[in-house]
Each structure stands twice: as structure tokens, then as C-alpha cells.
Write a protein that binds this DNA or RNA. Structure first.
Lengths: 178, 178, 178, 178
DNA sequence: CATGAATGAGGCTTCATTCAT
DNA sequence: TATGAATGAAGCCTCATTCAT
């Protein structure tokens, strides 16, 4: 009885998340999202009454949750914060390789462009907070500073990796943090 | 002989540079640029035959030159690389305060979005190279790594500052680099 | 046995009557009607199988019945036709004040716009006939002409009152009829 | 060198005036207007930057000017106000016959429906004022009341004529005014 | 009888660009 | 070199209605 395929709402959200990351908020049309999902026009506005901005919010939330899962997966099994950060960088490098079309860290294009920028900032802060929690757990003496430094560097490295079309800057990230 | 006011071409370029930074490439219309300059429609295509992409290239070049000037101004009078980097961060913090509407470091929106992304990467590399040259001049043992680290951190901090609407992350940047 | 609150069908009809008068037939969406009644989408098509046009017919009938009641209430206790007409004008002025958002005399927007205009004309004629009956009863020598004149003037005055956002033209109506 | 055909702007305005009178503001789509003029989509927004509402304003102004011309043509050659009013009614009856698709007096649909109702009221007042001026010129003792009565009755008769699909009420108008 | 998801045609408007003057 | 009218594809969104539950 369980649906084999995701709900209409989730399909739209996933397609939007991908497209916004590839082409940015203004660079993605709702027609693009619909084409990718083969859904009719009206469906979108049934599930997202506020339209494109609404869809972007849901896509950002989805992407943010993925980020949080990655943070957990990277630091949970680590023995110290540095090891966890190295694992985090590697995970992002692989993500970058797998999604060659992604630009910037997820959410960044929405942070830069969308009409709902104010709603994006807390998501980014949530990643820093989750990382700080892990830093505390792993006994880091300055968890907040460490977490901020990780994300500042990660965002900068992702940008550089995107510019160069090469994940090397992401892999070099742990070295930059020493 | 010097024009009291900037040429038509420069006025268009400056307006475009500002708007692309505020709203992104797709988020800025050529009509926006024309409205900001009070110039008629045809002027744009006279000065920029390839239209919007052409304008974006010129705007990016202009922004990039500003970046290079800032690098020079920050490191030239410095006694060591660290001092220069601190001056650089302060200059960016002031820039951020003066241009509250800017999003991301200049050029980043064009890097993420525009149809001429490939042309943006070399500009970013140029800033790193200029910084590496200064590092060499100031006797830094690993100029390339140092320069890369400066820009990675600067981009990350600018993103964070934009999200928080607060230049604090930019001012905290030198501390993150220790 | 009497329902404490109006039936679903009546709630829809009343909401539609109000909205059509405020915004016209094409200016009112079925979504507007549903929003005003907090009823779900399917309800409308259950009670009005032919959809919006069906709803408009019911709304027009409802509004027309109100008109007929007003005619009766105005002329029934009157001692002569002129006195009844004065009472009628006063009733309309009060109606206008109470429903500031109404435009035109009820039914007029449907008369002008809807896809069922042909069904509206008899309603208007019904008001004239009812008025003529009262004129006859009150001994007026030319009941049809008198009734026509009353309604022609009433419609014109309502239009003027709406344009001026002031019930004065309705109150001035008896004077115009002398 | 004189243009044989009206300007693009005027063609759009005339088509819009006709369509708004036939089908109302919301019942007329900008596509309808463009189809009638065989003009491309962009032209409309070049000449009417505020779009449909802008077009409606221009159409109303055009229709209003026609009304004023008719008033002048009816009363100017008249020997007294009553004679002028009779000529006016006859002109409207002919107009009604010629434009069988018109609903209500021109401007009324825009008065009832459009988003610019506040701008319509002064036009209607302008017709009354012009008529009052003629009444004064022709020696009527109460020009304002007379003019108001003419227009109230004209609007009411036009509405009735439209409902009945018969110009008779317009022709009967002078009789109602005695 | 009630509910809300699905549907796709059609709504208004903005877009980047071309062209005639 | 400067101007603004012309162009039509594409943008986002609302619409009335149907249908499965």
C-alpha cells in the first residue's frame, strides 16, 4: 500500500532543489520544474499556493536537511573534531563530483538571489550550530569559532571549486584549516 | 578635455555592476539598468552589441579591477603579509557597510548564474594571483596557499556577513586565519 | 428542525450574491466564493452542477427576491404611490449605506457581464411589474409608465451614488421624479 | 506624409473602448484587444506601461470625449433645454442601435468593475457639468438639477434598453422627464 | 454529502533584442 | 550617435472544472 513513488509535493520540491542549485532562483522557471517532473501547471499552485517563492522555501529546507545529515554523518563517528572536519570535506568533495552542475553550496543561490533571503540565513546558521554541537561533544575548546571557521572555509572552497570546475579546493580544505 | 561626467558606456557599466551584485544576473533586467541610468533603449545595444552578456562582462571587469586595486592598497604599505590581510579584511568590512545591498563578493553572482561563467573564473584567479604576488614580496614562505586561504575565507565571510546582514564576520576574518 | 445556520447551498448563494455585486461576474472567482464561505472545492459543484453560471443564477434570484420584498415593504403601507416611492428611495439609500461595497443596483453587474444575461432581464422586469401592481392598487392613472420611471431613475441614481460614493443621489430621487 | 491610419496607441485605445463596453473590464482580455488590432503583445506595454488598467483609462477618456461631443451636438443647435434633451435621447437611441453589442452607457462597465473606478467618477461628472452649462445657456432655471436628472434617466434607460435588447426605453426618455 | 488533489487552458506582464529614424 | 517604437517568446499565476476517495 506504501507509495512506490514520492508524493507530488516531494517530487516538485526535489526537482526545484536541483534546478535552483544548478541555475539559480531567477534562472530557473516554474516551467522548468514542471517539465522535470512531468506535472501539470496547476499542481504546483495547489501544493505551493505562494508559487515560486514557496517552492524555493521548501527546496531550501530540503537541501538544509541534507546538509544537517551530512554534518551528523561526518562528525558522529569521528574521534576528534579535526577528523570529523576532514570527513566533512571529503563528503562535500564527493557531492561536488556527483553533482557537477551544482553551483555554490546548496542554499547559497537562494541566499543571494531569491525573494526570501531572510528565511535562508537561519538555515545556514543551523548548520553552524549543528557543527558547534559536534565540536562541543568532541571536546573542542572553542566550538563556535571552530564551527564558523569550518563553514566559512567550506563555502569559500565550494565557490572556488565551482569556478575552477575542480573539486581540488574542497579536498584542500582541511589543510587550509590548520 | 576630461569629461565632467562619466561616459555613457561607463555609466551603463557601473549601473550594471551594482545591479548584478544586488539582484544577480537573471534578476537584473536591461530595463533596470536603463532606468538607473536614465538612458534610452537603443544606447545599450550601441555600446554593447552583444547585449546583456556583454554588459555583464564589462561590469565584471570593472568590479574585478576594483578588487585588484583594493588588494594593492591593502598590502602595498604593509610590513608583513598578516598586517596586509588585516587591512584587506577591514577594507572589505567597510565596503560591505557602504554597499548594504551587495550580495556576496563582487563577481560571485555572475560566477554562479550568468551565461559567461567561464569568463568569471579567471578574474577570481587574478585576485588570488595578485595576492600571492604580494605574499611573495612580503616574504611569505607559501604565497600561493596563503593567497588561496585569504580568498576562500574572504568569500565565506562575505557570504556569512550577507546572511546575517552584519559585517562582523568580515571583521572576524583575520582571527579565523591564525 | 430549523437549521440554526444556513444550509451549505444558501451560504454559497449569499456569498456569491455579495461578491458578484462587489466585483462583477468575471471579477469574482469561484475560489473567492469558496474562501468567503470556508467551504471546500467540491461542495460548489455538488450543489451547483453547472458551476459558476449556476451559482450566478441562484445569486441573482436571491437578490431579485430581496428587491421584490423591498418593493412590497415600501408600497404596502403607503397611502399613495408618491409616498411609497419616497419610502422606496429611502430604503435603497439605507441599503447603499449598509453595503458600501455594492456597485450598481443588485443584478446589474450580472445583467451587464454574465453569460446568463438573457435570464437577468426578466428579473428586472419583475420588479417593474411588481411596482406597477402597487401603482394600480394605489390608484395611479398610468401604472406602467410610473413604475418604469421609478426603476429607470432608481438605477440611474444608484449608479451616480456609486460613482460619488455618496447616497445623496438616492435620497434626491423622489425630487427628480416630480 | 500624413498617416493614413491611426497611430498604434489610438488603435489600441479604440479597440479597448469597444471591447470593454461589450464585455466589461474583466470580461475583456488584453489578448482580445491585441487580436482585434492585429498588434503584437509587446506593443501594448510600450504604449501603456501600466497595462490593462492604463488601457482602460485611455479607453474611458476616449469614450468620455465622445459623450461630451454628443452633448454639444445635441444642445448647441437647440432652442430650449427640452428640445436639446429630446435630441440627446434620439442620438443615444441611434447609438444604441448602431452598437448593438454595447452594454450600459459607455464608461459604466469600467465604473462598475475596473480597478480604476475612482478615476471614472469625474468623467461622469464631466458630462453632467457640460449638460448643466448648456442648460444655463438655454435659460433653464435649475441647470444642475436638470442636468443630473437627464443623466440619471439616460443611464437608467440605457440599462433598460440593454436588458430588453430594444432602444424603446431610450426613445421614451423625454416622456419620462416631463 | 464532503473533501482536496489534479488538470491544462488562459490570464496579465516582462523580457532581451531589432529596427527605422 | 541617439532615440523610442516594434516584436513575440517566455515569465509567473489564476481559472473553472473534474475526479477519486
Amino acid at each position: 500500500m506504501a507509495d512506490a513513488q514520492p508524493s507530488t509535493r516531494l517530487r516538485l520540491t526535489m526537482a526545484a532543489a536541483q534546478l535552483f542549485q544548478e541555475k539559480g532562483y531567477h534562472g530557473t522557471s516554474v516551467a522548468d520544474v514542471l517539465a522535470m517532473t512531468s506535472l501539470p501547471k496547476g499542481s504546483l499552485y495547489h501544493h505551493f499556493p505562494d508559487g515560486k517563492a514557496d517552492l524555493a522555501r521548501a527546496a531550501a529546507k530540503l537541501a538544509s536537511d541534507v546538509m544537517l545529515d551530512i554534518v551528523t554523518a561526518a562528525y558522529e563517528p569521528a574521534e576528534d573534531f579535526t577528523q570529523g572536519t576532514t570527513r566533512l570535506a571529503e563528503k562535500f568533495a564527493r557531492l561536488f563530483e556527483r553533482h557537477a552542475h551544482w553551483r555554490a553550496c546548496p542554499v547559497q543561490t537562494l541566499l543571494l538571489e531569491g525573494p526570501m533571503e531572510a528565511e535562508m540565513a537561519p538555515l545556514l546558521q543551523g548548520w553552524i550550530d549543528a557543527t558547534a554541537t559536534q565540536a562541543t561533544r568532541l571536546g573542542h575548546p572553542e566550538p563556535d569559532t571552530a564551527a564558523t571557521r569550518v563553514w566559512v572555509t567550506l563555502i569559500g572552497c565550494w565557490t572556488l571549486a565551482d569556478a575552477q570546475k575542480d573539486p581540488a579546493p574542497l579536498r584542500a580544505m582541511p589543510g587550509l584549516l590548520l
